[in-house]
């Protein structure tokens, strides 16, 4: 069995997405689907409902009145957004307490995932007239492949040490060197296993190699997530000790045609909503944010 096959075999040992999320994915693609139908899929899963409502009430969405039901969430946010939040809540449940090899806790991995989701959406809002569908989710799930790799590393003698011995390289190069595959490739396979939308799978697969994407519309979304990932690491949002060991394609910056003023405003506007959204889900060490910010 090759290392890639061994890593992928870990995918099957991870918790799968709740049945409700898979059904929801189909329902939101059905133009005749109603808020009542969406609610009937989600409501039987209490954990899913709770996480969805917590996320919907985070400062990122800025609703002044509390959202108390799935039906209300659908009517205020739309079916696609509710699907994205259900998927986010379900994703939070498959993150292990610690990601071996990457030296990152579940809390920081979640914070980084949320950060890339929020930043991707914020970048897109600055450079496009209409937000690309599922842009938040593509950012949120970009590092999905690290979860089965971490599970694999945990079971294989010497791999944690091999990872830490090569920490002067970008994570994707360490993975390739040691295992002959990397988290983008593994994440792409996992996205297929989870039956995620094609675009989410593509972004996961290409988020470190945006120049290799041929279709211009797809490439723009990959560029957005590629940049959002870098900004999240730079801003310390759930980065690991070696998180800055990544390369940003200069062509991404040219293609997005984005300037420093925009970068500054994206980060200034996003930090509070990111922490607010990330803190809705409790992990093993839920540290309260203390601030004197005015």
């Amino acid at each position: 069995m090759s290392i890639l096959e061994k890593v992928l075999s870990r995918v099957n040992t991870l918790p799968s997405l709740p049945e409700a999320v898979a059904r929801l994915s189909k329902a939101v693609r059905d133009p005749n689907s109603t808020a009542t139908a969406i609610e009937s899929i989600i409501r039987p899963d209490p954990a899913l409902t709770t996480n969805l409502l917590k996320l919907a009430n985070s400062a990122f969405f800025g609703f002044t009145k509390e959202i108390t039901s799935v039906k209300q969430a659908v009517s205020l946010m739309g079916q696609n957004r509710v699907y994205e939040l259900a998927l986010s809540g379900a994703f939070s449940r498959v993150i292990p307490p610690h990601l071996n090899g990457y030296n990152i806790s579940s809390r920081d991995f979640w914070l980084h995932s949320i950060a890339v989701g929020v930043l991707s959406e914020k970048i897109a809002s600055k450079i496009t007239r209409q937000l690309p569908e599922m842009i938040f989710t593509t950012g949120l799930l970009h590092d999905l492949g690290k979860i089965p790799i971490a599970a694999f590393i945990e079971k294989e003698d010497g791999l944690t040490t091999a990872f830490s011995d090569n920490q002067n390289l970008p994570a994707i190069e360490i993975e390739q060197k040691i295992m002959g595959t990397h988290h983008a490739e593994v994440g792409g396979v996992m996205a297929q296993t989870w039956n995620l939308p094609r675009l989410v799978e593509l972004v996961i697969l290409a988020h470190h190699s945006p120049n290799e994407v041929n279709n211009k519309a797809d490439q723009q979304i990959v560029d957005i997530v590629h940049l959002a990932d870098a900004l999240a690491h730079m801003a310390g949002l759930g980065t690991n000790p070696w998180g800055l060991h990544l390369k940003v394609e200069p062509q991404t910056i040219s293609r997005l045609n984005i300037g420093f003023d925009i970068i500054e405003s994206i980060l200034t506007e996003s930090i509070e909503p990111i922490y607010s959204m990330a803190s809705t889900i409790s992990f093993h060490k839920n540290q309260k944010r203390t601030s004197l910010n005015s």
Binding site: L237, G238, P241, G243, S291
Partner: peptide, 17 residues
């Protein structure tokens, strides 16, 4: 956290990453 500014008399501040 990123964006915080705090003051204290008897505390250990922990920041990062």
């Amino acid at each position: 956290n990123t964006g915080d500014h705090l003051i204290a008399n008897e505390a250990i501040f922990q920041a990062g990453p």
